[in-house]
């Protein structure tokens, strides 16, 4: 039984854009799955359908033995809490400390009243500090999150996602707004989480060189359709041109 199973999902936005056109994927526990494709090919939409930030137009997604596409309200929130997500723009809470940001990953299991007063359990506070330590930011716990550099902010976002005790981590172009060396450091944290904590990762990426280094499996989208599934090492010149178009040249990031 795969951890995540998307069956023939399609997504049409209210304005008529067909972002996904019948996609099937299975993701096994422990994989580091990378999704590639041109911008506009539907990568972000796919990730957002998995945790139901967007609803699918047809098809269904089964996550951890539950059909997440059919869940609502409390049950949906519980399912979401087991899916971490990080974003290209980090999406931290402005004007709040790093620690508060990390703790917000525990909202789903904190009673509403307590969370409004900022009262988290002692256990969660310890956990937050421990995860900050894992991403190398233990020193920055009480600094305002918007005062950190891009790479540091993304690591806070990773710690926040880890607070959810996620089974799966969705990463939507997590390094697209970072410089090359910072990109690698962030990707290494994702790899560490994948390998040491056993969290399954689904990551949208732009650069093939990163794909080859970190992915255990690759899928490629083109205009909302799945055009490639396989090992990262199997992507050759031919496939590259199919995915990115005839005129594309590979740029690498070191």
């Amino acid at each position: 039984m795969p951890l995540l199973h998307a069956e023939h999902i399609s997504k049409t936005y209210p304005n008529g854009t067909q972002a996904l056109k019948g996609i099937d994927i299975e993701v096994e526990q422990g994989e580091f799955l990378v999704v590639i494709g041109l911008s506009g090919s539907g990568k972000s939409t796919l990730l957002r359908c998995i945790n139901q930030l967007h609803t699918v137009s047809s098809g269904r997604i089964v996550f951890d033995d539950a059909e997440i596409t059919a869940l609502k309200g409390r049950r949906l929130r519980q399912a979401r809490s087991r899916i971490g997500m990080i974003f290209q723009q980090f999406n931290l809470i402005p004007r709040k400390t790093v620690l508060t940001n990390v703790l917000s990953g525990a909202l789903a299991r904190t009673p509403v009243i307590k969370s409004l007063l900022g009262m988290y359990s002692a256990e969660d506070k310890q956990k937050a500090l421990a995860y900050l330590d894992i991403v190398g930011l233990a020193q920055k716990a009480y600094v305002r999150a918007d005062n950190l550099s891009g790479g540091q902010q993304q690591r806070v976002a990773i710690a926040r996602a880890l607070m959810q005790d996620p089974k799966i981590l969705l990463a939507d172009e997590p390094v697209a707004s970072l410089d090359p060396s910072t990109s690698h450091s962030v990707m290494k944290y994702l790899q560490k989480i994948n390998q040491e904590l056993g969290v399954t990762v689904i990551c949208n990426l732009h650069f093939l060189s990163l794909v080859r280094t970190y992915a255990t499996r690759v899928i490629a989208l083109k205009e909302g359709q799945l055009v490639y599934q396989g090992a990262p090492s199997d992507i050759d010149e031919q496939w590259f041109k199919t995915i990115y178009g005839e005129d594309a040249v590979e740029v690498s990031i070191n």
Binding site: R77, R80, N91, S104, L107, S115, M163, Q164
Partner: peptide
């Protein structure tokens, strides 16, 4: 910005928590 709202929703937070934090 939609970002923080999206991020809080994705953690499985209650709508009231999403507004308070996002």
């Amino acid at each position: 910005h939609d970002g923080p709202v999206e991020a809080m929703t994705a953690t499985g937070a209650h709508p009231v928590q999403v507004i308070w934090y996002g």
